[in-house]
Each structure stands twice: as structure tokens, then as C-alpha cells.
Simulated assay, not measured.
Amino acid sequence: MTAPRTITVRTLDHGPLELRCPTWCTGEHEDDVHRADISHLGPDQPLTLPTRSGPVTNLVTALEVRPYAFDGFLRMPFVNVGIGADWYPTGLPGLEAMADTLAEQAEQLREQARRLAVLLQEARR
């Protein structure tokens, strides 16, 4: 996190617009956009899985807020969840549901590992 700072974004529909960035904002802002398309983005947080070929990104999360969006949900901070090529703006209840689901799926993966261990042990006999 950094200290809050003020930036100026050149918009197509409202001219230059002065904005105060949240402390978590990476400071990357595009000019020549519509005001409704302005967003503050936090750094990407990839969630990776180890594979035989090396780490593979499973999903990516990033804090975001779009202070002038038409959708009121997007005007408050949320976490944008990237899965494949798609992004899903997600609030606290959605993130908690995703975390619960990932924990359940982790247990399913552990169960698969236990089954594999038994099969490998049987194959060695």
C-alpha cells in the first residue's frame, strides 16, 4: 500500500478529472476514457497450483473500485476474480463462498491423493 495520491485523468465526456487514488491503487490509469470507465486497480494476486510442468495460475484476484460506474455495486471496493479469460466482480459474500468452495475442493483433492496412495501401494506388491 502506498500513501494516497491525487492524479488527473483525461476523460472523453468530462474533460480532465482530478481523482484521489486509494492507498492500494497501483496508479495505472488510462486517459481518453469515459468517466464511467475509470477504475482504481490493486495488484494482481495469482493463485497458482504446482504441476509437473511448473506452477499454473488457477485464478487471479485484484482489488478494484470504479467510482463513476453506472452499476452501484462497482462504486464500492470489490475483488475482481479472473478465471480463464473472464473477470467476475465479487463482493464479500461471494468471496467467502468461493473460499468455502475452494476449501471443499481441496479436501476432494486430498481424498484423491489418498486413493492414489493406496493404488500405488497395491501396485508395488
Rank of each mutant, 00 (worst) to 15 (best):
A3H: 03
R5Y: 01
T6K: 12
I7Y: 08
I7W: 02
T8G: 07
V9H: 03
V9G: 04
L12K: 13
D13W: 01
G15W: 04
G15Q: 07
G15V: 05
P16V: 10
L19F: 08
R20T: 15
P22R: 15
P22F: 10
P22G: 12
P22A: 14
T23Q: 14
T23H: 08
W24M: 13
W24A: 12
C25E: 06
A36W: 04
D37C: 03
I38G: 04
L41S: 10
P43L: 11
P43K: 13
T48E: 14
L49N: 02
T51W: 04
S53F: 00
S53D: 15
V56Y: 05
V56M: 11
T57V: 12
N58K: 05
L59I: 01
T61G: 09
T61D: 00
A62K: 13
A62V: 00
L63P: 01
E64H: 05
Y68R: 07
Y68V: 02
F70A: 15
D71N: 14
F73R: 15
F73D: 15
R75W: 01
M76W: 03
M76R: 14
M76G: 08
F78G: 01
V79F: 02
V79E: 05
N80A: 12
V81R: 03
G82M: 01
I83M: 09
Y88L: 07
Y88M: 05
Y88C: 01
T90A: 13
T90G: 03
G91E: 07
P93V: 10
P93Q: 12
L95K: 05
A97I: 00
A97W: 01
M98D: 01
L102D: 02
E104A: 13
E104M: 07
A106E: 07
E107F: 00
Q108N: 08
Q108S: 11
L109C: 09
R115S: 10
A117N: 14
A117M: 09
V118Y: 10
L119R: 15
L120A: 10
Q121P: 00
E122M: 11
E122N: 09
A123V: 03
R124F: 01
R125Y: 04
